[in-house]
Amino acid sequence: MEIKRINRDEWQLAASLFDRYRAFYKKQPDLALAERFIRERLDNNESVIYVAMNGDKPVGFTQLYPKYSSVRAVKNWILNDLFVDAGFRKQALAQN
């Protein structure tokens, strides 16, 4: 299992996972919307996405969004999205 940060040219690795993530939270599946959303976040440098790869198959992802603290004068990251394919849950992917 490999955990990799994807770049803007690898958006397709996260798009279907993101669509299934939204469906898990009772949103209507919409792969075109998921593809557009992921591409826009990466194209605009608005998030960081890590994908868990089982060989050449993406099986999980997390998306982080930047947040800034004026008082501390630092950038922080908010983990907003996390999804693992049902067949790969409870296998300690997060420990990789």
Rank of each mutant, 00 (worst) to 15 (best):
E2V: 11
I3M: 11
K4D: 00
K4N: 04
R5V: 11
R5T: 06
R5I: 10
I6T: 06
N7V: 05
N7Y: 01
N7L: 04
R8W: 00
R8E: 10
D9F: 10
E10T: 03
E10I: 01
W11M: 04
W11P: 02
L13K: 09
L13N: 05
A14W: 00
A14L: 01
S16R: 03
S16A: 12
L17Q: 01
L17Y: 06
L17V: 03
F18Q: 05
F18A: 08
F18K: 01
F18G: 05
Y21W: 07
A23H: 07
A23M: 07
F24N: 10
Y25W: 12
K26R: 14
K26L: 15
K27P: 04
K27F: 14
K27Q: 15
K27A: 14
Q28M: 11
Q28P: 05
Q28N: 12
P29D: 00
L31D: 10
L31M: 11
L31K: 13
A32G: 09
L33V: 09
L33S: 11
L33A: 15
L33E: 12
A34M: 12
A34R: 05
E35N: 13
R36Y: 12
F37D: 09
F37A: 15
F37R: 11
I38G: 00
I38C: 06
R39W: 03
E40N: 13
E40R: 14
E40H: 13
R41S: 10
L42Q: 07
L42E: 02
D43K: 08
D43S: 05
D43H: 07
N45E: 14
N45Q: 14
N45I: 01
E46Y: 01
S47L: 01
S47N: 00
S47R: 03
V48C: 06
I49S: 04
I49K: 03
Y50V: 00
A52Q: 02
A52I: 06
A52V: 09
A52P: 05
N54F: 10
N54G: 04
K57T: 13
P58Q: 10
P58D: 02
G60I: 10
G60K: 06
Q63D: 09
Q63I: 13
Q63H: 04
Q63V: 09
L64W: 08
L64G: 01
L64F: 12
L64P: 02
Y65C: 04
Y65T: 08
P66R: 00
P66L: 02
P66M: 04
K67E: 09
S69I: 01
S70W: 07
S70Q: 12
V71E: 11
R72Y: 13
V74K: 12
V74F: 02
K75R: 15
N76W: 11
W77L: 13
I78H: 13
I78G: 00
I78Q: 05
L79C: 13
L79S: 07
L79E: 02
L79P: 10
N80V: 04
D81I: 08
D81V: 07
L82V: 14
F83V: 04
F83H: 07
F83G: 09
V84T: 15
V84E: 07
V84G: 08
A86S: 13
A86M: 11
G87Q: 15
F88W: 14
R89M: 08
R89F: 07
K90V: 07
Q91M: 14
Q91V: 00
Q91W: 06
A92H: 15
L93K: 07
A94M: 10
